[in-house]
């Protein structure tokens, strides 16, 4: 299975999904008008990863987005729900100290998704 890499733009995120390290990183901005279309290859990769991934090893979902629109938010929820089938899913949620809204958004995801959530303040 090949790793997935997508370079970010002004309105789409940088995404890096690694089969070996099981590290799935999202950073930058996610504001595509057609979010389902944008995230479709990410869902394909994750579906394949659910079959082939090492379930004894943790899978880390690194969330480093600074801006995301509501349709991206919905798709990230769907993605986390899918990945939460893995027994060792960890969500590392990064936020700036003065961004209480981003922390709150992460806390809301943690109420809806069965996974270990870690909130990490950026310096």
């Amino acid at each position: 299975m090949v790793n997935f890499k997508s370079e970010g733009t002004l309105n789409t995120p940088t995404i890096s999904l690694s089969n070996e390290t099981q590290l799935l990183t999202f950073s930058g901005r996610s504001l595509p008008e057609n979010a389902p279309q944008f995230y479709s290859p990410v869902f394909d990769w994750c579906n394949a990863f659910l079959e082939s991934g090492n379930r004894d090893m943790p899978t880390i979902f690194e969330f480093k987005l600074e801006y995301f629109n509501t349709s991206s938010s919905k798709l990230i929820y769907e993605l986390l729900k899918l990945l939460s089938q893995l027994p060792n899913l960890e969500v590392h949620w990064y936020f700036e100290p003065d961004d209480e809204d981003l922390l709150e958004a992460g806390e809301e995801f943690s109420e809806l998704i069965t996974a270990k959530f870690k909130f990490i303040e950026l310096n």
């Binding site: 057609n34 279309q37 509501t70 349709s71 809806l112």
Partner: peptide, 23 residues
């Protein structure tokens, strides 16, 4: 209300999450 819509609604045919006004 926001969390309920996010967890239950499907995306619209235009890719909307019906969350815009709530957000």
């Amino acid at each position: 209300h926001y969390m309920k819509i996010m967890a239950s609604n499907d995306l619209t045919d235009k890719g909307g999450a019906s969350l815009g006004f709530v957000e």
